[in-house]
Design a protein around this nucleic acid. Structure first.
Lengths: 208, 208
DNA sequence: CGCCATACTGAACGGCGAGTCAAGTCGGAC
DNA sequence: GTCCGACTTGACTCGCCGTTCAGTATGGCG
């Protein structure tokens, strides 16, 4: 028996988190077994518990890990854009599940729902969720502040606007990943843009 | 051994669904065991599976059952009101978790999240969710149509408005039941009323 | 060239909980 | 009153899965 020890360049901890996130996305938190994660990561089940204290901790870590990925991606994309209105559009592009073909069905949203369920009972996850959610709202608020500083947007409370827009995006994204026949990615995108324009107070026309 | 047979006035099926909904609310879907439901209902574990084919089916039924309760309650309340604007206010009153002290923390929202998670993988639950969600949006749209007929509200697509308002309420309600420090029931209520007024196009002043 | 620490394996253990079942109880029909 | 069938019980089975652990390979160090 034994083991081909792993190349030093690789990080098992991260590999396992990544495998876990993929399995959770596919099977759901409740149906995720340690052996699934092991298989996905290409290691033995025993090794999972060698790196993580328990299944529970691993799952919790995997959820926030996946959320970080999404945050970092959007954050990077947005920083490249100067116009606040275009930043807003890009944020919405990236937030609508299945809108950009290159990003699959944007299954981060499915994981996000799992976070909510867990956060209802797990105090640590509840704390993590609040931090993650605050970061999400701040991202929106920052765009609004940018637009207000540049004169693109009128003066209104950015935090309040971010709260409302964030909630709207959350609510619509849920319906979209559920494949609700009432709403498509395109429709969600339009709804988000229109409400954003209306509530923040900018004009939709150019390249809308 | 044996059994005191139950009074004919009672409906075991319903009793068990009710017990299940309460247990799920308290412990979460994943942590709900058959024996918990039995205990809550005051019967033996065996009886649960006498009335339900499997744990899975029971849980699924319990979730839609609880949602029905919420729908019927709000529906009844709203039908009593004539002014569309007041109907809208009442709907929001009832939808904000913890806003009306007499309705506890309105834990239906917690169950609703469980529905979402399950609907991602269970086709039957996916169908049920869509029906339930459609009913929820229709409830909002009907209020808007009422207001438009009476001249209280201007003419805009009621279905589209309902979609957006429903999503906003969903998104905000999630944050509230998570005890997010950024938002309180009162704040959510104000946000919903303001966006409703702004998007539907009515004035907030009277008894606002 | 041994030797050790570390990474890793997979078989085995143990507990838990869904589902089964044989037996008991009781209301009502006749 | 007696019998039937629906209702109810709780002990039992059985499979599953998280966790443990004894053992194995391997890279590096002296």
């Amino acid at each position: 028996m034994g083991a081909v020890r792993q190349k030093p360049g690789k990080d098992r901890h991260q590999e396992i988190l990544d495998a876990a996130a993929r399995v959770i996305t596919e099977r759901g938190l409740a149906e995720t077994r340690i052996s699934d994660i092991a298989e996905q990561a290409g290691v033995s089940p025993g090794l999972i518990l060698y790196y993580f204290e328990s299944k529970d901790r691993l799952l919790a870590e995997a959820l926030t890990f996946a959320n970080d990925q999404f945050y970092l991606r959007t954050s990077r994309e947005i920083r490249r854009i100067t116009s606040a209105k275009e930043q807003m559009r890009r944020l919405i592009d990236l937030s609508v599940p299945g809108y950009l073909p290159e990003y699959g069905r944007l299954d981060e949203w499915a994981l996000w729902i799992e976070v909510w369920v867990r956060a209802l009972r797990d105090p640590q996850m509840a704390k993590d969720r609040e931090v993650l959610d605050q970061r999400w709202r701040d991202q929106i608020a920052d765009i609004i502040r940018t637009g207000q500083r540049s004169g693109e947007f009128p003066q209104k409370d950015p935090a309040e606007l971010a709260l409302r827009l964030g909630a709207l995006i959350d609510g619509l994204a849920i319906q979209v990943i559920m494949n609700d026949s009432e709403i498509t990615p395109e429709k969600m995108h339009r709804a988000c843009m229109e409400v954003a324009a209306h509530e923040i107070g900018f004009d939709l026309e150019p390249s809308g």
